[in-house]
Amino acid sequence: MKWIISTLLLGIHALGVYLYQEKPLEQSIADGAEIYQDFCLQCHGSKGEGVAGAFPPLAQSDYLKNELEASIRGIKYGMKGPIKVNGVKYDGVMANQGLEAEEIADVMNYVLNNWGNKSSKQITPQEVVAIKKTK
């Protein structure tokens, strides 16, 4: 009896994971590209190059790579204050764009897999939901 319940629970969990991962990475990246055009491109540039001194680059950005959670938090809640990206200091304001969790996951997947960026791990909406305003 016990093992039946365990198997059942495992099955439900697997189904959950399956449904959760429903959106393939390619689709998430494609959806993220649209979000990027709408909400990010004006400051961060069409190739993620940023604007020297004003808006940090996303292409091959060490900050993005090392501070993934802070990056997602920044998109979700907005961010301000000094950060260092590829050795350059930035001290600006990124406004909260009002994106939904799925949109944030999509745009992260787009950014993490473009302009020389490569990420093996897909960001999921659940991951975004779990990130709180302060650490």
């Binding site: 709408d38 909400f39 406004a95 909260n96 764009q97 009002g98 994106l99």
Partner: peptide, 8 residues
């Protein structure tokens, strides 16, 4: 207020 993109 609906905050999204350039709106708010």
């Amino acid at each position: 207020i609906y905050v999204r993109g350039q709106g708010g």
